[in-house]
Structures are given as structure tokens and as C-alpha cells.
Design a protein around this nucleic acid. Structure first.
Lengths: 227, 227
DNA sequence: AGATGTGAATGAGTTCACAGCT
DNA sequence: AGCTGTGAACTCATTCACATCT
């Protein structure tokens, strides 16, 4: 049953992970796989895989396993990756440039179609598929490019105002990489990603002044998974 | 009781969040605050704040609240941010450069002290506090710089080999930003951070072809918190 | 046999509600 | 009175174990 409402972020992220594993298997020429094999191969839990998947329909074949290609395609469309998601990068400094490379992937589901910056030096630069435009032109840029998701890669102090500008320009969702919490405006999904928190986590396991050796606590690192 | 073993990553991340809120309050001149006020101010849960904090000692004063400065300092040292954590960036492309800016923060707890790259073009470039060196010199770079945490910002295909090189060079922990899962070697804490998963999450809330409007599901975005 | 899908059991994490300190 | 610290209640998530299908 495609019970799409109320899917927890935990399950969602695992689906992404499963999909990546499956793509990997596909490239390796594997056609069928059981939940147990998947779990062994990628350090996951077999029963969890089954439960996660069963939520969205009966993709498997009892006694056999899952058809890699079929399952991958199901997940792909479930995650909304079967249609293209045009991205707009706001702020083309190092982070913005890095993200524009990093995020274009996944069988073409995500594609950077536009970028804006405040710096006149950068405006006009040709990025191959598009030209960097001025942040003041956001409304026109969003309209012309058809961008759907805005990616904030601006300094912390400029994050909130740029989010709001994106909303006014008609963007449908925003991902914020600036190290500042942005407050969501009703109706425009927003995800704040703070890269620094990961560093703090790692710093913690190293302990006060080198508590013991490495992995002390409940092995908390590693939330996400394979490629 | 500083029951440091077995702290869940969830709590850990919340502690980081609390600390940021407190720093913010400090700058605003607030000296005391109750869990309730904190919760209201930053969209948190009061009882959760109290429970999280109580785990590590009695920082609060009944009937009064928490002394902002005191609590901030406690958290700071609890998270290991009172001593300096020298960072080494591996891969000085756009992402590496961006991270080297982005991650230097937090009252000087994190400082980039060295960087390496494979590209002879980049080797030798002066970054102010240090000079980019060749990745083959990792052992010497780690020794000379005293780097503690390695930050991988290399292409996916090079992630595993560079992690292993870091381990051989004597690094104490690693944060991997390459879009590839790296397998941990016993004794060297590793955290894989996959930026793409955030995009997929946002794409999902937008739904198949624009299911409803914005925030459909259980509002899953927004894990982390304020600055 | 061999693997899925799923209720039942366990465990983790969060909220409630209040006793006890200031 | 006001607010913390904490056991008890509750909700959410994961794992177990097995009936069911191929």
C-alpha cells in the first residue's frame, strides 16, 4: 500500500541507501538478491529491509528474493527520482561550486539549471549549461530556468534573507547549507543541513584528552550508508 | 554522573544544538534561562532538554534555571570543544576549499592546520597558515602538523584509498564527505557524510508529480537546529 | 527448501507529571 | 511560587519468529 503520508525520515534515508546498493549491484550485473544477502553485503539488517520495503507494496518474490532492477525502479519512483528536479544554487563561492558538482547525479534526477550570486565579479560567468546571474534577478531566474529546489550556499548572515527571496521568487523547496538555522515559511519545505555537527560528533568520540582509544561510545558514527 | 560511554548520536547532536543556542544567548547578554524558555526560543522540548542535561550532572538550579555561561562551558568541554582539534583536509578542490572555510569556527576548537592534494598544480599553494602539500607526503604532514582529524574531500573513487592512507599516516579520526561509503578500520573512528541524501529527502516531500502542496508527510525535514 | 511479509516482543527515545530543592 | 531532575507512561523503531507463498 503506497501509504505515502507520514513516512519517517529514518525510513526515507534507508530507502535512499537501499537504492544506492541496488544500483551498485545492477552495475555489477546482479539480477536477484535476497534481503539477507543485501544485509550481509552492505552491513544492514535483513528484517529491517523487508519491513521497510513491504510498507510500499509487495516487491519481493517469496522463496526467491527481489528482482534488482524492478526494486530499484520502484524505489526510484517512490523517492521521486524518476522525474527531473531542476536545482538552483544560491551563492557560487567554493561551497556553491562544490555542491553544483557534487549534487548532479543519480541518473539525471538532479540537475543544476541555474545559479545566482551577489558578487558582480561572478555574475555572467559561463558554467556550461547556464550563466551565473545576479541574486536580484531571482524571480526571473526561477521562472526562466524552471528551478524547483533552491540550494543555499551563502554566508550564515545571508541565509534567512535569501531563503525568503527564494520563496518570493516561487521556488518549491529549499536546502540550506549555510551554518545558520533558517526558519521555514509555511508551504515551502526547508531542510537545514549543518555540516559542523558532524565534526563535533567526531571530536566527541576522541574524548576529553584522548579518552582510551578510538571508538569509545556506542559506535554512534555512521548514520547513512553505501554508494 | 559523566556517564560518557554509550551516548547516542541523537543526544550528542542535541547537545551541539543546545550549545549553539547558549552561545547565541550569551552574545545577546542573557545570563540565566529555564529549560522552558530555551524550548520556546528555539523550538525544542523542555523536558528533553532537562533529561539530556541531567545525564551529565546537575547543571541547573531548581527554582531558577540554568546559568548560561556555566552550562555553555560544561557542554563545551563535554563535547571536547575546549581543546583544539587540528584538521587536515584531503583534497583541495572546491569542496575541500569550502570545508576549510566552513569548518574553522567554534571558539577555535577546530582549526585547519594542513591540506594535501594529488594535483601538482595545487601543491605548494600558500593558504596563509600552511602550504598545500602532496598526498604522498601524508605521514610527514600528519606528523609535522599534529593533525588529529582528517577530512576527506576527494572524488568518490579515491575515498577508500585515502582513508587508508590517513590511517597509515597516524590520523586519529576521519570525516568523509566523498559520496562513497568508506569502510572503517578498527580503531580509527570514521563518519560518512553523504550530502546527497538531503536532496533526496527534499525531493521526496515534493512528491511524485507535485503531490498536494509542500509539507505532505510527517514534517520530517529539519533534524538539526539553530546557530 | 528458501525467502518474503507480518504480528508479536523487545528495545530506544520522548513526553508526562510530580516530588523536591531554592 | 518556580524550575529542576527523574521515575513512570507512552510512542516510535527495531528485531524476532513464524505462517505463507514459490
Amino acid at each position: 500500500m503506497p501509504d505515502l503520508e507520514g513516512v519517517s525520515p529514518l525510513i526515507l534515508n534507508r530507502l535512499s541507501v537501499y537504492l544506492r546498493c541496488l544500483r551498485h549491484l545492477q552495475e555489477t550485473g546482479v539480477e536477484r538478491i535476497s534481503s539477507q544477502q543485501l544485509a550481509d553485503r552492505f552491513l544492514l539488517s535483513a528484517s529491517q529491509i523487508r519491513k521497510d520495503l513491504a510498507q510500499f507494496g509487495d516487491f519481493g518474490i517469496r522463496g526467491v528474493g527481489y528482482e534488482v532492477a524492478v526494486l530499484a525502479d520502484h524505489l526510484n519512483s517512490l523517492l521521486g527520482l524518476d522525474r527531473s528536479h531542476p536545482l538552483l544554487i544560491v551563492g557560487m563561492g567554493n561551497l556553491g561550486s562544490a555542491l553544483s558538482r557534487y549534487l548532479g547525479f543519480n541518473h539525471g534526477a538532479f540537475k543544476v539549471v541555474a545559479a545566482v550570486d551577489r558578487d558582480p565579479e561572478k555574475v555572467g560567468r559561463d558554467m556550461g549549461d547556464f550563466v551565473i546571474r545576479h541574486v536580484d534577478d531571482l524571480p526571473a531566474v526561477v521562472r526562466d530556468s524552471g528551478a524547483e529546489i533552491g540550494v543555499l550556499a551563502v554566508p550564515a548572515s545571508a541565509a534567512q534573507e535569501n531563503y525568503e527571496a527564494l520563496v518570493r521568487a516561487g521556488i518549491r523547496a529549499v536546502l540550506n547549507f549555510a551554518p545558520a538555522r533558517v526558519k521555514r515559511i509555511q508551504g515551502v519545505p526547508l531542510k537545514n543541513v549543518d555540516l559542523r555537527i558532524n565534526l563535533e560528533e567526531v571530536a566527541f568520540v576522541l574524548g576529553p584528552q584522548g579518552r582510551g582509544r578510538g571508538a569509545s561510545l556506542a559506535d554512534p558514527l555512521d548514520d547513512d550508508l553505501p554508494t
